[in-house]
């Protein structure tokens, strides 16, 4: 249990006390991290500000844009609407865990090949979401992929490229299965 410090800003003479913290252990991209964080730290802020994995982006911070999408136990979630402390027993995968510059994930290569971004800010979330879609294995047609990717917005409007990129990887996975 994380206890909030009883020292209020007023008691400290108007100077804000440092935020009360507790120990939270997270497994991120296969690595264990022990963080000293306040209970109100979202998973997104823990990843970016404490583990310094800045691939995961903060867009709206309200679960509306999907830029913060990460995988928890293989399932895609919005890391901005979840507290880090709620994920102590979970396997968290971020864009940094999917591929590297030397060894691109097939989705990363497909996004390059299909010109699936302009500014790139939504891309890590798009790719993590697409990996979630692949794990689910329920979207095959273009219409299905559009519906199942609707939680990720792209302000530049690269949707046509994103759709083609995801479709290519979905198709290649289906070919490998058959």
């Amino acid at each position: 249990m994380i206890q909030q410090s009883s020292t209020s800003a007023a008691a400290a003479g108007g100077v804000a006390a440092p935020p009360p913290t507790g120990t939270v252990r997270l497994t991120i991209n296969g690595q264990q991290h022990t963080l000293q964080i306040a209970p109100w730290t979202t998973l997104l802020d823990a990843l970016r500000e404490y583990v310094h994995l800045t691939g995961t982006k903060k867009g709206c911070d309200h679960g509306q844009c999907g830029a913060c999408t990460v995988l928890v136990n293989g399932k895609r979630i919005n890391s901005c609407l979840s507290l880090a402390v709620m994920h102590e027993d979970h396997d968290i995968t971020t864009i940094e865990g999917l591929g590297s510059q030397e060894n691109l994930h097939p989705l990363q290569q497909a996004f390059i090949d299909h010109d699936a971004f302009q500014c790139g800010y939504c891309t890590p979330g798009q790719i993590c979401s697409a990996q979630g879609l692949l794990n689910e294995g329920r979207a095959h047609t273009e219409e299905e992929i559009k519906e199942h990717m609707s939680g990720n917005l792209c302000r530049c409007g690269a949707y046509a490229g994103i759709l083609n990129a995801v479709k290519e990887v979905v198709d290649s996975q289906l070919r490998m299965k058959n």
Binding site: R76, S82, E136, H148, G151
Partner: peptide, 9 residues
């Protein structure tokens, strides 16, 4: 309702 990410949470 919602999006796949939200429905997963």
């Amino acid at each position: 309702g919602a999006s796949p990410q939200l429905r997963n949470m």
